[in-house]
Design a protein around this nucleic acid. Structure first.
Lengths: 119, 119
DNA sequence: GTTTATTTGCAACATTGTTGCATTAAAAGA
DNA sequence: TCTTTTAATGCAACAATGTTGCAAATAAAC
């Protein structure tokens, strides 16, 4: 519950640390991992792996772009480390013969509008 | 050197474990991390993060699809855990105003041709 | 061949993620 | 409402992943 409330309040994907800082003493690491796992299975939220050290969690259908799992794009700002959901996308790639596509995700690295102005 | 040789021999992206198994007693974990980091900086190889627990390393320009960093796609087979380089791709997404794209990567999850036949 | 710089490998540590188990809280049944 | 059953919580302990310091070994420069 507390995890969902934090994510709703901030309204953008957050890392474990960011969530912990918001939760204060309520936070327990084991409970956190177990909760996000079941919530991901049930479809309440999903995990976005930017990098093996940068992992963000986002509520499904969290914003105007309908942030849900299965084939949508994210922009990761290298400057402020924020992750922005870009909604669905279309991509053109040729898969080798016989290969089957199930889901896909697109990660764009760059700068968010705030950080690009500061340069 | 040994890392490069293993990657050349297998000719597909490999995880740290897979590389270690090929290297035998030559392998040292610290040396491994330091080597892949400098080789990634110099542009000899790059790292593909499928998942926070699944990380593969691939030589740049490793196969017929010219596997190099900066904007190319990979197919991850859920069955055999192999990662296949798909080369470059084009994607259509609308970035919010002012955002700047620097690199992008597309990860497709599904089945490789061998595994899809076995179903 | 000596000096200098770089690479290596070990120990120790930090972080991330998982498992077992006893306690607590919640849901169901009487 | 009180008891029984089930599920969720939090702690300890562990495993895996990644990093840092430092001394020994190797390579490069003089």
């Amino acid at each position: 519950m507390a995890i969902i409330q934090v994510l709703q309040k901030q309204n953008h994907p957050m890392s474990e640390n960011e969530i912990r800082n918001q939760m204060g003493p309520l936070y327990d690491r084991v409970t956190f991992y177990r909760s996000v796992q079941t919530m991901a299975e049930v479809g309440i939220l999903h995990k976005i792996v930017v990098d093996n050290t940068i992992i963000k969690y986002a509520l499904n259908a969290c914003n105007e772009n309908e942030c849900k799992h299965d084939s949508h794009a994210h922009l990761f700002c290298k400057e402020c480390n924020q992750l922005i959901c870009l909604g669905s996308f279309t991509a053109q790639v040729k898969l080798p013969n016989g290969c089957i596509e199930e889901e896909s995700e697109l990660l764009i690295r760059g700068l968010c509008n705030r950080c690009s102005l500061q340069k």
